[in-house]
Design a protein around this nucleic acid. Structure first.
Lengths: 154, 154
DNA sequence: GAACGGTTGACAACTTGTTGTCAATAACGG
DNA sequence: CCGTTATTGACAACAAGTTGTCAACCGTTC
């Protein structure tokens, strides 16, 4: 039974860390009038390096299509994204960072990298990699388990 | 800059694992008509081993007082919790598991322990502990940073 | 014992995410 | 070219959490 408690505690540690990081991210990104969610969304586009459609962004972030769309609409309304007609699909425009979005993201990302350097220095070299591996393995052992009948697969 | 990316990826791995575990937990707990949130709430009470007030439960779970209260009211309405008058505070009743709540939690917890044993066996002995330590350290390096002016400290 | 500040529950508004449904548009097979 | 199926955006409903505000209660202090 010791093993079970060990795993429970680990899961709770993940929940705790998740909550803390989101709360901290909200505060950190507030300087650029962003939230954690918007920061992540801009980051997904920046990382892709090219304009994407809403479903593509949703896939790359691992959230539902509708969830991504909601944020995209808000970010577009706030002028942080541009919508380009998609030659390959009339109803599905391509989203890309606007000038304001670029600047916004650059500022927060630059500050983040400074902070990350300091924080990462608190850990031994291979430590972060091995944690990533374990987390991904743990996640893979707990799949969404929709099996088959799903709509709108995620 | 490699270090910064390493940390970013770790944070994203935490977000991913968190999402996966919640989704999986919702499905797993559905057999007892629970959700992840309700399961955790019942677990917090069971772990405490004694009736608690709403703010105490909130503290122990690391969520806001109002957030815990919302779930407590729902769980009470569903008959999974009992409210006992609190001799020490007239307005703040003590919550405890009802018979139904006990049974509900026992069933899901028993199934969870079986599953956890199998999953924990996939990891080396010290691995889970070291991940917990890193996660908690990472969380502690990213405090809510309210500093002073906060209402309703969390 | 009246006045003060801190605690608590209730309520409302908001954020971020989910699922489900619908209609319009692609995409494809005959 | 037409019918069928899959994508896609919009919308609604919901879950879970946050913050803020208010009024009632508690404890302490003068």
């Amino acid at each position: 039974m010791e093993q079970a408690k060990l795993l429970s505690d680990t899961v709770l540690a993940i929940f705790r860390a998740n909550g803390r990081l989101i709360a901290w991210g909200d505060h950190f990104a507030a300087a650029q009038a962003l939230t954690s969610a918007r920061w992540q969304m801009l980051g997904a586009l920046a990382l892709a390096g090219e304009p994407l459609t809403a479903p593509q962004i949703a896939d790359s972030m691992g959230v539902s299509r509708q969830g991504a769309q909601k944020q995209l609409n808000l970010l577009f309304a706030d002028g942080l994204l541009t919508r380009t007609p998609n030659p390959a699909h009339q109803r599905s425009p391509l989203y890309w960072l606007s000038a304001a979005g670029q600047q916004c993201f650059n500022e927060v990302d630059s500050r983040w990298r400074q902070h990350a350097l300091k924080v990462a220095a608190s850990f031994a070299p291979g430590e972060l990699e091995s944690v990533q591996r374990l987390l991904d393995k743990l996640a893979s052992l707990h799949p969404p388990e929709d099996a088959k009948g799903e709509n709108d697969a995620r």
